[in-house]
Amino acid sequence: MNPIERISVYYDQFSIAERKTCNLIIEDPQTVIDNPIAEAAKIYDVSTSSLLRVAKRMEYKGYSEFRYALKDWIKEDKNTHNSSNIIHIIESYKSNLDKMYSYIDEKQIIDFISEFPNSRVFTIGMGNSSLPAQQLTYFLFSTGLWSSTIMDSVQLKYLENCLSKDDLLIFFSVSGSVGSYKEIIEYCKENNIRTAMVTMNDSEYLKKSVTYYFLLPMLSIYNPNNNKNFHRIDNRSIFNIFIEILISFYTPQ
């Protein structure tokens, strides 16, 4: 995952000050590439701690690792700021759809789908991720399978009181937020309750902690022409395409 994709993954979790720093980096990544942290902070007019905090929040070991990652990325994506909004958005979707061929494992999908008929399925998503969670529930209903969607932190907090070994929990999260889901995932792991995570975050913790892990390609933040506000392309469409693929493999019993 390149640095701009990582910014996209964690963007909603950043503070206002951290988002300001991220926006400056996206608009002018060369400042980080060409300068040590003190000089870059001076040029951006932010604190060195803000730059370091952003790098670490994105799971880089420090500023230097982030700096080298940006340098590698800039070589591959020289046209990021030159295309029109229309071209950039359409090309972003096209590129991600092409990437999905290599992200999705058909055997894993088939193994996962085989769990559905004998499970009580909970689809889980917070905020914008609640919409694909609901979408999967509707699809399951249409095939005659029961499902329930969990969409807020209060429901999630008390969910473990209702779970059994026949349950299957399916999480949708762009960021794969460990903070939001760690407690329930750990509970399920300890009690042999199956879990699945559908996310854009390439997280080693999640890979080891859930039964099924589905990584999907991320649509990045970009800077619209003649506009100081940065635009995050909506990733829910990628979730919905994944759900379409998932359900296409299910044959009602």
Rank of each mutant, 00 (worst) to 15 (best):
S153W: 02
L145D: 01
V174W: 05
R53N: 14
S148R: 13
L70I: 09
M58C: 05
S129V: 15
S142H: 09
D234S: 15
E183W: 01
F116V: 06
F242G: 03
I89T: 14
N79P: 10
R67T: 09
W73G: 04
I243V: 09
Q253M: 14
V210D: 00
E76C: 07
L145H: 05
V46M: 08
I221L: 03
F139E: 15
Q135N: 13
M58R: 00
S148G: 14
V9D: 14
K71Q: 11
G176C: 10
L168W: 14
S84K: 09
S83Y: 13
S119L: 02
V32P: 04
S237K: 13
I25G: 07
A38V: 12
D167Q: 14
G62V: 02
D167L: 06
V32N: 04
S84T: 06
N161G: 05
N240D: 07
Y44K: 07
I233L: 10
R6P: 03
A196H: 13
I243D: 04
S147V: 10
V54G: 06
D152L: 12
Y103S: 05
Y63E: 07
K107E: 12
D12K: 01
I110K: 00
Y222D: 13
I89V: 14
Y93W: 15
A17I: 07
S147F: 09
C188Q: 12
K71S: 11
E183A: 07
H88G: 00
I26W: 12
D152P: 09
G179R: 09
E186Q: 06
V174D: 09
K182I: 03
K20D: 00
Y213T: 05
G127W: 02
H231I: 10
I86R: 15
S173P: 06
E186G: 06
S114Q: 09
N96M: 04
R194M: 15
I90V: 05
H81C: 02
I109V: 02
E39D: 12
Y181T: 03
M200P: 09
D152H: 03
G127H: 01
I113T: 01
R194G: 14
N191F: 09
Y187E: 12
K208R: 08
L216W: 01
F242Q: 11
N23T: 03
I245C: 05
Y103G: 01
N96Q: 06
S119G: 07
N2W: 05
L219V: 04
K228I: 12
I37K: 15
N235V: 06
N191V: 11
S142M: 13
L246D: 10
S175T: 03
M151G: 09
V46E: 02
S175A: 08
N128Q: 15
I238F: 15
Y68F: 01
E183V: 00
S95V: 10
S47H: 05
M1D: 08
L145R: 08
D34I: 04
H231V: 05
S119F: 15
N227L: 02
M1V: 04
F230I: 11
H231G: 03
Q108D: 03
L156T: 04
I245V: 08
I185K: 08
L216I: 04
E5D: 08
D234K: 12
I110P: 01
I170L: 15
Q30V: 04
Q155Y: 07
